[in-house]
């Protein structure tokens, strides 16, 4: 059995992480689609990808339920449960998504976008509500997961746009797609730094070790490189031919970084709280000793 020291949670495995990975990216995409004011060709295609991603995430997490055929019970507690709320948001997202696909009406897309954001926010708060997991319960995780969902959505917007254009050279790509990538990757960078700092002060040692181990990669490769690529593609004269490649490369990096961050947070630093006593008991007339939390690093 586990002792007092914190250890990695095992109740949410790769399937739950997939919900954050696919669901976050999919919902981010639908939000970015609206952000782009639908200034893209074939918006239904983007929406389809978005719904497919969200659906895949939900399907995977459904397989992790202990009683999967009672899944409808998930709707019973929207009053306080972010998981219930996420489920409602998913229903709205799917409903408005379907409506958008059928009607093509911008308002429907807008409603789907709102639902998508709600879904993204709910799943972020769902993670954040896990009080037993120090790396999740910090408030900074909310901005990190929201920002990465949006960054992934923007990245997908860009990538899908170029994919469509490779087939239909007349297709328009959302004019602000790369701006969104730029903005959301920058936001995520801020969120990451803030997230990491909030944990470095006090967290289970294995969380801090993990953060330190991957920080360089996440910051440099995951943020600085794509930002440089996009800025360079925009500002450096004479490389317009390379611009699509640079945009897509930046988007791919931003997307995979986002997915890694979620994998990392859920499955690598998802350490539980551990146990702690603030003071040792008096055994007879003894001086007591004040204790640190075992397995934690505190500044």
């Amino acid at each position: 059995m586990n002792g007092p020291n914190p250890n990695q949670q095992t109740n949410w495995d790769w399937r739950a992480a997939s919900n954050f990975i696919f669901g976050g990216a999919g919902s981010g995409l639908v939000v970015c689609l609206v952000f782009a004011a639908l200034g893209v060709s074939y918006p239904w295609l983007y929406l389809l990808v978005s719904l497919a991603l969200v659906g895949t995430g939900l399907a995977l997490v459904w397989t992790e339920l202990g009683r999967p055929f009672r899944f409808a019970n998930v709707l019973r507690h929207p009053k306080t449960s972010w998981m219930s709320r996420e489920a409602y948001a998913a229903i709205f997202l799917m409903a408005f998504g379907l409506l958008s696909l059928l009607s093509g009406h911008p308002l429907a897309y807008f409603a789907a976008g709102i639902s998508g954001f709600a879904f993204l926010y709910c799943q972020t708060r769902m993670l954040n509500a896990c009080m037993g997991i120090p790396a999740w319960r910090v408030q900074t995780s909310v901005l990190l997961f929201v920002s990465t969902g949006l960054a992934e959505g923007a990245s997908l917007l860009l990538i899908i746009g170029y994919l469509i254009r490779s087939v239909d050279q007349g297709a328009t790509i959302g004019p602000i797609a790369y701006v969104l990538v730029l903005a959301f990757v920058a936001l995520r960078w801020v969120a990451w730094v803030s997230y990491r700092n909030s944990l470095l002060a006090s967290a289970p040692t294995l969380v801090i070790d993990g953060l330190n181990r991957f920080n360089g990669m996440v910051q440099v490769l995951g943020h600085i490189v794509p930002l440089i690529l996009i800025i360079a593609a925009i500002t450096v004269p004479g490389i317009s031919a390379l611009q699509p490649v640079m945009f897509v490369l930046a988007a791919l990096i931003a997307l995979s970084t986002g997915w890694f961050i979620k994998f990392f947070v859920v499955l690598l630093i998802g350490s539980n709280q551990g146990y702690a006593i603030p003071v040792t008991p008096e055994r007879g007339p003894a001086g007591i000793v004040f204790c640190d939390k075992p397995g934690w690093t505190q500044k």
Partner: peptide
């Protein structure tokens, strides 16, 4: 439904 959310929400394992 066995979603285990409560398992992770509990800071006492």
């Amino acid at each position: 439904i066995g979603c285990a959310h409560c398992v992770l929400a509990c800071p006492y394992q």
